[in-house]
Deep mutational scan, measured.
Amino acid sequence: EPELVFKVRVRTKDGRELEIEVSAEDLEKLLEALPDIEEVEIEEVEP
């Protein structure tokens, strides 16, 4: 069974934007590691 992958769009407080694809596990780590995120948009990517 393929692992869930999420497309994550992040905007930081200083206005930088970042778009990455991460696994569910990595997404959890990412959110814990970035306390200064202003906006996060997450969508599931079809395998």
Results as ranks from 00 to 15, higher is better:
Glu1Ser: 12
Glu1Met: 11
Pro2Ala: 07
Pro2Ile: 08
Pro2Lys: 09
Pro2Arg: 10
Glu3Ala: 04
Leu4Tyr: 11
Leu4Ala: 04
Val5Asp: 09
Phe6Lys: 15
Phe6Leu: 15
Phe6Asp: 11
Phe6Ile: 15
Phe6Asn: 13
Lys7Tyr: 01
Val8Pro: 05
Val8Arg: 00
Val8Leu: 02
Val8Phe: 01
Val8Met: 00
Arg9Gln: 01
Arg9Met: 01
Val10His: 01
Arg11Thr: 06
Arg11Pro: 00
Thr12Ser: 03
Thr12Cys: 08
Thr12Arg: 04
Lys13Gln: 04
Lys13Trp: 01
Lys13Val: 06
Lys13Thr: 07
Asp14Ala: 04
Asp14Thr: 04
Gly15Leu: 01
Gly15Pro: 00
Gly15His: 02
Gly15Tyr: 01
Arg16Trp: 11
Glu17Trp: 15
Glu17Ser: 10
Glu17Thr: 14
Glu17His: 11
Leu18Cys: 15
Leu18Asp: 01
Leu18Asn: 01
Leu18His: 05
Glu19Val: 14
Glu19Asn: 10
Glu19Ala: 06
Glu19Trp: 15
Ile20Met: 10
Ile20His: 02
Ile20Trp: 14
Ile20Gln: 02
Glu21Val: 15
Glu21Asp: 05
Glu21His: 11
Glu21Ile: 15
Val22Leu: 09
Ser23Lys: 10
Ala24Tyr: 10
Ala24Arg: 11
Ala24Gly: 06
Ala24Ile: 08
Ala24Asn: 04
Glu25Pro: 07
Glu25Met: 12
Glu25Thr: 12
Glu25Phe: 09
Asp26Gln: 12
Asp26Trp: 09
Asp26Val: 05
Leu27Glu: 00
Leu27Met: 04
Glu28Trp: 14
Glu28Arg: 13
Lys29Pro: 02
Lys29Thr: 06
Lys29Glu: 05
Lys29Val: 04
Leu31Met: 06
Glu32Pro: 02
Glu32Trp: 08
Ala33Arg: 10
Ala33Val: 07
Leu34Asp: 04
Leu34Ser: 04
Leu34Gly: 03
Pro35Arg: 15
Asp36Gly: 07
Asp36Cys: 10
Ile37Glu: 04
Ile37Met: 06
Ile37Pro: 04
Ile37Ala: 10
Glu38Val: 12
Glu38Gly: 08
Glu39Pro: 03
Glu39Leu: 15
Glu39Lys: 10
Glu39Phe: 15
Val40Pro: 02
Val40His: 03
Val40Gly: 02
Val40Thr: 03
Val40Asp: 02
Val40Ser: 03
Glu41Phe: 13
Glu41Gly: 04
Glu41Lys: 09
Glu41Thr: 13
Ile42Gln: 03
Ile42Leu: 05
Ile42Val: 07
Ile42His: 03
Ile42Trp: 12
Glu43Gly: 07
Glu44Ser: 12
Glu44Met: 13
Glu44Thr: 10
Glu44Asn: 09
Val45Thr: 07
Glu46Asn: 12
Glu46Met: 12
Glu46Trp: 13
